[in-house]
Structures are given as structure tokens and as C-alpha cells.
Write a protein that binds this DNA or RNA. Sequence first.
DNA 1: CGTGTTATTGACCAACATCAAACTTAGTGG
DNA 2: CCACTAAGTTTGATGTTGGTCAATAACACG
Lengths: 249, 249
Amino acid sequence: MDHQPFISPEHARLIRRLETIAEVGEPIRRQIAALPLRIKTVAENEDIVREGDHPRESCLVLDGVICRYKLVAGGKRQILSLNFAGDLPDFQSLHLDAMDHHVSALVPSRVAFIPHEALLAAIHAMPELGDLFDRHSLIEASQFREWIANVGRRSALQRVAHIFCEVYLRMRALGLSSGDAISLPLTQTEIGDATGLSTVHVNRVMQELRRRGLIASNGNLHTFSNWEGLREAGDFDPLYLHLRPEARP
Amino acid sequence: MDHQPFISPEHARLIRRLETIAEVGEPIRRQIAALPLRIKTVAENEDIVREGDHPRESCLVLDGVICRYKLVAGGKRQILSLNFAGDLPDFQSLHLDAMDHHVSALVPSRVAFIPHEALLAAIHAMPELGDLFDRHSLIEASQFREWIANVGRRSALQRVAHIFCEVYLRMRALGLSSGDAISLPLTQTEIGDATGLSTVHVNRVMQELRRRGLIASNGNLHTFSNWEGLREAGDFDPLYLHLRPEARP
DNA sequence: CGTGTTATTGACCAACATCAAACTTAGTGG
DNA sequence: CCACTAAGTTTGATGTTGGTCAATAACACG
């Protein structure tokens, strides 16, 4: 009879992440635990992968905050996603040869690279793992869709409130929250790049959110004591995150 | 020795679509050709799938123009994608139980429904088909990312030019263009819903694009005789479409 | 302490939204 | 064939959200 295999804290990050969206059985855990990881520390604002690259490994976030972004004519930046421990921000490179965006660290972070061939072998050996990654990718696409609606059709205040709602729920599902608070080291410029707003306007919106008692910020610690109010202000419906019932609010 | 299997025009749509992003070998064609299709005609503005639904089949576009959209607080609509013959606008429902957006027809269209169990069986029988669908889904996610940047960080004129560039290249890859022109029955309100702009402003931007000689519209027929100019005006780089070399400009 | 980054403020401005009306076009039924 | 209608386009006037610029304040860190 098999005993419990050793699972490193790094592999555990990925397992925990996948558990937020589906049940992860023992055989899959084992398969994941056997993936080779090349661990790397990245500095603040260091690009991990750049647009046009042809990566041969995918990146797993271990600690810190990673973002994906694009630059448009005129040098303006659009952040496409925020990623935390367990996320796979360039899983796509497994099936697409060229990167269509950059991946970078917003704060000093730790990531692990998993060779594509190891991922393919693991998926081949256990198709259920492939299903899990499929689900992961499709949920990510769902998050992108919500962001299109967010920057396309919501007011500045709604956009900022919405992004805080999303990040709060996702971090909570990953066990990265403390009660109704999260530690999120984002500058107002970065919030603007994620919501399509200017830094100055983000500042004014944040003040308004604080004034309304929807967000209390103390440095990087953001507290949401009036979740229902924030949810409403941000026109937020968590359906699109497709979280498992266990990971939902 | 095997003879060529019969491939219906409906199945051929899907094969042609997949050929725009990867090589599709004979065994895969056969697998696709065996998929059961339930064909349906849909009226203009008819919802094919609604947010919250739990579909048990995925929808293949055969003819017409389909869009996905979300509604935000205040009733404003954001179009998330435009889909043409061969597209699978709710392939995701294969792995995600609840729809997080609506799918609807912008003009009278024809679609086919493929039962999830048939898709799963086909993928199980031929994992390469699964890889192909994975690639399809990941490219779709890439398009969503580009749309985030489009509505988030580009000017009105850039947004509209960009969307025409994308649609032109995609339709051309599918064989739906006639030289440097496409027939695209979109109202200016719909263009606004796709770009996060008001109808009135879309009208003014379209006039400017015509004035500059970048788009010539005659009813639904849009001609792009100055592709390079349009590309530049829209800050458009086709990399994110991940088209096969054969399908590129 | 000095230095660099981030947050905040105020003044001003531009892009785009909104509102309302006129115009065009494509059916549609008598 | 011709009103009649509905949908879409276009125009003008006006309003608002959010951008830009520039300066100051608050922090963090060596």
C-alpha cells in the first residue's frame, strides 16, 4: 500500500490553487508533486517573460505578486491580470509558441519554472490533470472577459471596487487573507494600469471608497469590513471566478 | 486502404477554423467529421445561451455573426467577442458548469450544437484533438487580453480601427473576405458595445476613418484598401491571433 | 538626514457621453 | 407603386468624467 508522498511547500502552492477550482484527488497530487521545479527569485519590476519570447517552461508563482501586461502605442501600460501563489500566469506557453504579453513581478517574488516536456508528460500520464489545467485556463479566460466589461463599461469607482472584490476573493480562496483584510502591495499607478485609469484619478476614487467606508487601507493592508457595500459599489458577482463551493464567500 | 470519409459542409466549417491555428491531420478530420451536430437557425438578437445556463452541448457557428456579451449595472452592454463560421463561442461550457456570459446572434444565423459527451469521447479517443481545442481556447484567451488593452488604454479611433483589423484578419483566414473587403453587418451601436464607446462617438470615429481613407463602408461591405494605414491607426499587431503562417497577412 | 518613490492636491482641459432631433434606408402592407 | 414604419445614421448643443500638468506632502530607506 502506498504511503503519503512527500509534497514540497512549492508543489503545495499549485495543489492548493487547483483546489480552489476543483477537487484534487490523491493520484493527481502525486503527479503534481513529481513535477520538476526550477526555483527563482525575481526582483521588483523584473520581467519574468517578455512579449515575443518562446518559453520552454511555464512559470508557477510561489510568493509575491506577479502581473501580466501589454504596452500600447504611446507607452501606456495595461495590466491584464494579477497573480498570486499557485497561479500559472503563462501556462498558455505550453500550447502557444510566442508570448503575446509580458509577465513581471510587482514586488520581489519567488517563482518556479516547470519544463513544458515535464508538464506534457504528466498530463499524458494522467489525463485528469489535463482536465484540471483546462479548467484553470478556461477560468482565466473568464476573468479576462470580466476585465473587458470592467474597463469597457464601468465607472472609475466601480472598476476599482470591482478589482478589489476579485482580488479579495481570490486571495481568500488561496488562504492569503486575514479575516476581512488582505495585504496587497499595489501602487495607485498599478491600480490605474489594471483599470485603465490615471494615477491621479485612482487616488481620488480610493479616497471616495474610504470616505464611504468600503475600503480601509493602512499601507498595504486593505480591510473590507463592509463587503456587501463594496460588492454593490463594484457591481461584483463572483460567478465568473467559478470557485468551488468550499472556496466561495 | 481507407477512402476519404464524407465531410459535411458543417463539419468542414470547424475543420477550416482549426486549420487557421494549426495543422489538422487526416485522423483528426475524421474524428471531427464523426461529431453529431444538431443544427439550429437563430433569429437576429436571439440569445443562444444565457448567463447562468448549464449547457450540455457546445455551440459551433455555421453562418452569420454571433457575439458574446455581458450586462453591467445600469444595463450597459459589453460585447466580449465576435464569432464567425467555425468558431466555438461556448466551448468553455465543456469544463465550466455555469455560463458567465450570454451568447447571441447579431444577424440571422445558423449554429450547430455538439453534445459535451460526444466532444469528450472524441477527445478521449484522440488526444491530439484535445490539444487542438486547448490551442483554440488559449488563443481565444489571448484575444480577450488584447481587448482588455484595447478598451483600457487606446483612444476611440484606435479602438475602432483595431477591432476592424482583427475582424478582417480573422475573416480572411476563414475565407470570408473578398480581396481587401469584408461583409460585416454590425450596427454602430454594436461597434460601440464592443469598444466601450457610445453610438454617437462611434459614428464620429467612423467618419474620421473614412475621411482618412482607412475604411470605406458601403452598407455592410467594408473595404480596407490602405491596410498599413489602418494597422498603424489601430496600433494593431497580429501576433496575438497566433495564426498559422499560411493564414497570416 | 538626504533621496527617491508614492500619495495627495488644485487648476485646467480634452475626450467622450448624453440628449434630442433630423435624416436616410429598407422593408411592408395596402 | 407609394405612404408608413422601424431601424440605423448623422448632426448639433451641451455636460461630465476622467486626463494632464505641476507642485507639495508623506514615507521609506540607506
